[in-house]
């Protein structure tokens, strides 16, 4: 059961911190269960003794049969070392979690918004902006600078370590390290209004080589935009290799892309950015490499053309209260935008 819960911190920890917390959680749970059982047995024994004595007594009898204080002294006296041991274990784990093992090679700013995650990397003067999917290299500590654009949110990836609030007006720093490659689910853990329940994100921990490739791809304007067609230089071949045909050789594709891009710029650009186009809005998630993301609507739905079409038809039907309004688009316009967005590798 625990293995099947993607948010459980009791199994499959992907980092040293998460494993330390996992042991602490199991250890404390085991001690707690033991204490409960011991007390339950003591209560049962006490009742049995009490009933046995009651049988031989008149009901109106009251008496002090022994002062009973010994149980308090023994009980508290034996609980105390256990409590102290638990406190020490707690503090050792706290130190392990709080101390960063080495200087972080990478700094990522994550900003919580109602109800999505803005993710920005600063890499040698280059900025990568993305949303709802945090890609990190395995085995290196990543410094996280957490803040909020509106209300308090909380950054929590249970299988990678502790949670940390994202408070407007403050930047909380914490660090994150994945030791096992994989995809980890994250979730907002501080009540933030209507769609708190559907404010999820994912962390993709990938081998360092793959991470460098991802970075090289991400710094570019998205393939599929007119800018990408212009830039289709050999150095970008790796990044653009996903697109099947080099679009510059296909005038029809270029024309379709230009029309869809213009539509996107005029209808979506006030809120969304797609680098390489005139769409530079900063209210909603950056969509530059939209097609490379696996989910939409903050981890709520798989990123498929059908889901994107549903989302664009009426976001309020899927996440009631979300800031994105219902944009008036004809089915044809919607289809074009969907096709275009799903081409932004």
């Amino acid at each position: 059961m625990i293995g099947k819960a993607p948010l459980s911190y009791m199994a499959d920890g992907g980092s040293r911190s998460a494993l330390a917390l996992q042991s602490l959680a199991w250890g404390f749970t085991a001690i707690s269960v033991a204490v409960i059982i011991i007390i339950a047995v003591l209560i049962a024994l006490a009742i049995r003794r009490s009933r046995a004595r009651a049988k031989t007594a008149l009901l109106q009898d009251v008496a002090r049969d022994g002062d009973g204080l010994a149980l308090i002294w023994w009980g508290v006296g034996l609980s105390l070392p256990v409590l102290v041991a638990m406190a020490i274990w707690n503090f050792l784990t706290t130190r392990l979690l709080a101390e960063q093992p080495s200087d972080p090679a990478l700094t990522v700013q994550v900003t919580g918004h109602r109800w999505w995650w803005d993710i920005r990397y600063q890499l040698d003067g280059l900025e990568i902006a993305t949303a709802n999917e945090l890609v990190i290299p395995v085995g290196t500590p990543v410094l996280l600078q957490l803040s909020s654009g509106d209300v308090i949110h909380d950054f929590w990836v249970p299988k990678l370590g502790p949670k940390m609030d994202m408070i407007p007006g403050r930047t909380n720093q914490t660090w994150l390290q994945a030791d096992v490659a994989g995809t980890y689910l994250g979730q907002c853990a501080e009540y933030c209004g209507l769609e708190h329940a559907r404010m999820a994100f994912t962390v993709h921990a990938v081998p360092p080589g793959q991470f460098r490739e991802w970075v090289a791809r991400e710094v570019l304007p998205a393939a599929g935009t007119t800018a990408a067609f212009d830039n289709a230089a050999p150095s970008n071949a790796a990044a653009a290799s996903q697109s099947s045909t080099p679009a510059s050789e296909n005038p029809d594709a270029l024309l379709a892309a230009q029309t869809a891009q213009a539509l996107f710029e005029s209808r979506c650009g006030a809120c969304h950015t797609a680098r390489g186009t005139a769409a530079g809005g900063i209210i909603g998630p950056d969509l530059t490499h939209f097609a490379s993301r696996r989910t939409i609507a903050a981890g709520w739905m798989p990123n498929t053309p059908a889901n994107l079409d549903r989302w664009l038809t009426n976001p309020q039907a899927i996440k009631p209260g979300v800031d994105m309004p219902r944009v008036q688009l004809t089915p044809n316009e919607r289809k074009r935008i969907v096709t275009w967005l799903e081409g932004l590798e």
């Binding site: 007390i39 209560i43 009898d61």
Partner: peptide, 11 residues
């Protein structure tokens, strides 16, 4: 618990 154990409980 000690009160129960050293008493004559009526259930």
């Amino acid at each position: 618990i000690a009160t129960i154990g050293t008493g004559r409980a009526r259930i």
